[in-house]
Structures are given as structure tokens and as C-alpha cells.
Amino acid sequence: ANRDKLAALMVTYPSTHGVFEATISDVCRIVHENGGQVYFDGANMNAMVGLARPGDIGADVCHLNLHKTFCIPHGGGGPGMGPIGVAKHLVPFLPGNPVVNVGGSNSIGAIAAAPWGSASILPISMMYIDMMGSDGLTRASKVAILNANYIAKRLEEHYPVLYKGQNGLIAHECIIDPRPLKASSGVDVEDIAKRLMDYGFHAPTVSFPVAGTLMIEPTESESKGEVDRFCDALIAIRDEVREIELGIADRSDNVLKNAPHPMTRVISDGWSHGYSRERAAFPAPWTRLHKFWPSVGRVESAYGDRNLVCSCLPTDAYADVVAEAES
């Protein structure tokens, strides 16, 4: 019905839902049959390197994020660096450069100042690839998938795993769904995320791609011991929620609703909560050995997102400094 309006389809594979979509080749074929192109988002290539190729699946264009898959840090809005591969029929249209001849015969011109990207970032990935080698990169993909499935299996008795692929398995990440806990205990995903800080963990992705859920992506980097410690923390948090459900803990004054617990609050003279300082700050054995202290208590996230709070001096303060310098 939309054949005349179809230009291209952008698809992430494996999907951000954490599964290998079994019909991906059929989707690419249908798009091609109706005159469209397929843009393949390579954000999750850490589940494919050495195991599958986007071109074989049917992609016409694919970008390969260097973050995560090729050793560049992920987060902070960047660096957004990486190569873009195209099928043969698109090679003539590759962008060019006014200094270095890198474009195709029908180049659209330059789209970036540097013809090959950032010289400060690319060598890091090049060294990583050289040191890992083909076998190492393939093993990294396998371990990333194994870690994610291990976490899903350990947590599925405590939190529903929202999406699974064929044979009940997932790809490189899993989405656990704590939304039913809201009705039974008043606890939501933000409470769990903040409580994880007391256990020494920065929370995984919250409310993406599904609102109210946690998307967990361990990659290949974490050891089994660290993965188990993370799972133990989430299982312990589920037990803390259960105490609220059973009426053992107060619905509003509990370790989750008041999390995280910074040192200044734990050691203060006043402590009016219905649980101990020890339980607030040292909920697991490892927190006694290597305690990460949150610098502040909970911040109202929605307010912070909607209201710019500037911590710098007001502009008139700088004017006073200039006036003093000129006097």
C-alpha cells in the first residue's frame, strides 16, 4: 500500500528488545521488492562480530559503532564514531572530500571535515582489533550473548523477562519488567535503580526501550563473579520489595523509596527511618569490603530534566571582576 512512498527502512539487529528477529531477512526482501533500501543500525554488532554479516542478511547500508563493540566508551552523548559500509550498488554515491579523493563517481560531496574520521579515536579501535584477532573478536561476541542469557536465566524467577527469541533465548541484552511491583508495593523502576547504588552498582538503562523497565546489557567485559554479584543485588532488592508487599516494611518509608543513602545521611545524628543504618548502607557483604558512597541522596529526576539548574556564578559576577581589573 505504501510502495510509492517507501524510501528506506532503518532496522537495528539484534533488536533493542534483545532478541535476534527471525524474520529479518524476510523484512529486507520485502523492502527491496517494493523499491526501498535497508539501513542497518550496527549498534548491537557486539552480538554479531565473527558470527554473521549484515550484507548476508540483506542490508544496503550499515554503520558500525566503535563504542561498545570496538572498545570505545559508550555514553555521554558520543563519540558517535565509526565506519559506514554500503552494498556495491551504492558505492558510486559515497561522500567525497575536497582534499582527499575518497568519494564515488557520483559523490554527494563532503559530509565531514576529516575524510576518515577522528584520528584520536580510530587508532584505539584499530589496536583493539589487531590485538583481539578474528578468534578473539568472535569469542567476545559469544561471551556477550552468554552473559546476557545467564543474567536472564538467573533473574527470570524474580522479574519477568519481557522479550525472548526462539527457544526462549535472548541476544546480547535482556529487558526485565518490574512494572507489576508498582501495584503490589508502590515500588517502580526508579526506586530499584536508586537502590542499586547502595549495592555499589550504577543502574542499567532505565525506561528504554520500554517505559518502566530495566534493559541489562553486560557485554563481554564482566567476569562471572561480577555478573553474579549484580544478579545477587537485584534478587536481594526483590526480597526487599517482598517485605513491603507482606507489610513487614512500610510502603513509603523503606530502603527503596529512600535510596540511595549517602554517607552524610547515614552518619547524621538524626535517623527516623524504620530500618537500620546498617541495612541502608551495607545491604550486601561486598559493600563492607568495597563501599561506593553516593555523593547525594535522590534527586527529583523529572524536575531536573525539565528545569535547567546552573551551578556557575551569575553573569553579573563576571562583570564585577572585569570592572575591578579595569579600575
Rank of each mutant, 00 (worst) to 15 (best):
G42P: 08
K68I: 15
M127Y: 08
G212L: 10
A284L: 07
Y318I: 05
A319D: 15
I267V: 11
N307W: 02
D305C: 11
L181T: 01
T12G: 02
P73K: 11
A22R: 07
P54G: 12
Q166I: 13
L122W: 00
L308D: 03
D228E: 11
P54S: 12
M215H: 13
Y150L: 10
F208D: 15
S25A: 08
D130L: 15
P98H: 00
L66K: 08
G133H: 02
H290C: 04
I267E: 12
G78H: 04
L308E: 09
A152M: 05
A119K: 12
M215N: 13
D177N: 13
K88M: 13
H17E: 10
A323C: 01
M45P: 03
W286I: 09
Q166W: 05
A323S: 11
S107L: 01
A193P: 04
G270T: 15
S311K: 09
C312E: 10
V255Y: 10
M81S: 15
P115C: 09
P260D: 06
D316K: 00
I24K: 08
I145A: 06
H158P: 08
F70C: 05
A114L: 15
A325E: 05
C62P: 09
A52Y: 02
I24G: 05
T264G: 14
N147C: 05
D198I: 10
M263D: 00
L6E: 01
D269K: 13
S301P: 00
K88H: 11
P262A: 04
G270A: 10
P83Q: 08
L256F: 09
I151Q: 09
S252A: 12
D232H: 08
A236C: 11
M126V: 14
G75K: 15
A183S: 08
G168T: 07
G18L: 05
G168M: 04
P14C: 13
